[in-house]
Amino acid sequence: MSEANASATRITPGNALRPEDIAASHAVPSPEAAEYALWLGDDSLILAQRLGWWISRAPELEEDVALANIALDLIGHARSFLTYAGHASGRTEDDLAYFRREPEFRSAHLFEQPNGDFARTIARQFVVSHYQWELYSRLQHSTHPTLAGIAAKAVKEVDYHRDHSLQWVLRLAQGTEESRRRMTAGLKLTWPYVEELFADEPLIDALGGAAVRPSSLREPFDAAVAAVLAEADLEVPAVPGATGGGRRGVHSEHLGYILAELQVLAREHPGASW
């Protein structure tokens, strides 16, 4: 089915889309749109994989539940984007998640960063949720109906992630001396990976109004983040940016381990259904 047909049935602009809707639509993306969907899908998949580790290990049981909610939202976004991307090459979300090799992943380095302690996880969540909110709140108005539909669902969920992370940034920054020290350290470890999120790649030019230009998000992101950090009486870390390269398949050392664990069972049984 062509994109036009699909939009006539279920995919209309502003209509929040779930993974099941995408799978049922059979809408086929252009190679560029598929690649862009991989960017966003891989970001969420890798972060959900990271956050999944916290479940049963959080600082308090209520927080186990909160982090699991966030991870579940991210898995949902990943499934939507990967399902859609897969339609370009006749692959399923699971083909893409479980049977691609490391250089075929398009996640940015930030999403691959280790959980560390709770402060470091919160620092990563703080950056990711603010970045994703700026991104999805614009992508939901994209000229591309499927990408807009996925973003329309994601933006509401990410808005809550933003709130969750900033609540914790405030508490850790102004709680005890130890928590402040850890929050500061967490932000410092996270900040080198911020720059990559806002780097424009040639793909963005090819997509035109369908995608959101990453560099255009930098200013609103900086303003939002600076406001929270000011309230928390924290400095924006002044650290040099890392090289990045995730969008071109050049990853941090962490991704190999993440994929080893993610893919081990599926790869033991190629072709099996679960």
Partner: peptide, 9 residues
Amino acid sequence: DGAWVREAA
């Protein structure tokens, strides 16, 4: 490991 977080909050 969570004690410092609970205490901070």
